[in-house]
């Protein structure tokens, strides 16, 4: 398998993520400042965490001087899905990625970076990944700073529409592969149905969204792994 290892290609692939992040982190900047953070603190939150849902959940806890345990557990629950993504991405890393690189790459292994890296054919190399994390990281930081410092300059209607950017990207990643591979399409539809069940069933809707993501994704993926296993080099040797 070929290893994708171009820094320029990484930067280019990171641009759509960066633009989506500008919008989302802008919104985070606004809400952090209105929640009582200084502009500098909002920026530090974004530069040290690089999560959207996690940071948003942290603002009220920190602003109200909540306990460290409460903060830690909230972050663990909301962000545990990244463990799945890190395991998955660990299998996509090419030979050029050293152990030290892993410490850096995992720091910016966001939903979107993971999604784009996963969508590449073959393995991904260190230079490509450095490019792929650099543009989104800059976008995330700059957007937060702008939102925190000058949040109210954009009209509300524009901020509202920009809320779709990240989801639009997710759709753009899932749908083309779903079109090519029937099992992926079925898995996506099944995941969507599961997710809606958790959201709209009164007893289940109280489960924190971080857990819901993990439960639904693990269940759907395990089910499809059991009934629609992929072809591997070994399975072709033994099963044929």
């Amino acid at each position: 398998m070929t290893e994708l290892n171009s820094f320029k290609k990484g930067i280019a692939d990171g641009i759509p993520i960066c633009l989506g992040y500008l919008a989302v982190s802008f919104a985070f900047g606004i809400s952090a400042v209105s929640g009582g953070f200084s502009v500098f603190e909002a920026l530090l939150m974004s530069m040290a965490n690089v999560t959207s849902a996690g940071q948003l959940a942290a603002v009220p806890i920190i602003a109200s001087y909540g306990t460290f345990a409460e903060l830690a557990v909230t972050q663990l629950v909301i962000n545990l899905r990244y463990s799945l993504m890190s395991v998955s991405l660990s299998q996509k890393l090419g030979k050029s990625v050293s152990l030290a690189d892993r410490f850096l790459i995992s720091f910016v292994n966001t939903d979107e970076v993971f999604a784009v890296a996963s969508a590449q054919r073959g393995t991904v190399g260190r230079k490509y990944l450095f490019g792929l994390i650099l543009t989104p990281y800059v976008g995330w930081s700059v957007g937060t700073l702008a939102g925190a410092a000058a949040g109210n300059v954009l009209p509300a209607i524009l901020i509202s529409a920009l809320g779709l950017a990240i989801y639009g990207m997710f759709v753009a990643i899932v749908v083309p592969d779903a079109r090519r591979e029937r099992a992926v399409a079925l898995c996506a539809v099944f995941s969507a149905v599961l997710s809606c069940i958790f959201r709209y069933t009164p007893a289940l809707s109280r489960i924190p969204s971080g857990f819901v993501i993990i439960i639904c994704a693990v269940f759907a993926s395990a089910l499809f792994a059991a009934f629609c296993p992929i072809k591997t080099e070994e399975s072709e040797e033994h099963d044929a």
């Binding site: 990643i173 997710s195 993926s221």
Partner: peptide, 19 residues
């Protein structure tokens, strides 16, 4: 496990998108 990891990106992203 390989198959599981193959489906994970699609299921995670879909669960986060819908609804």
């Amino acid at each position: 496990i390989l198959s599981f990891l193959h489906y994970i990106p699609y299921s995670v992203l879909t669960v986060m998108t819908v609804p």
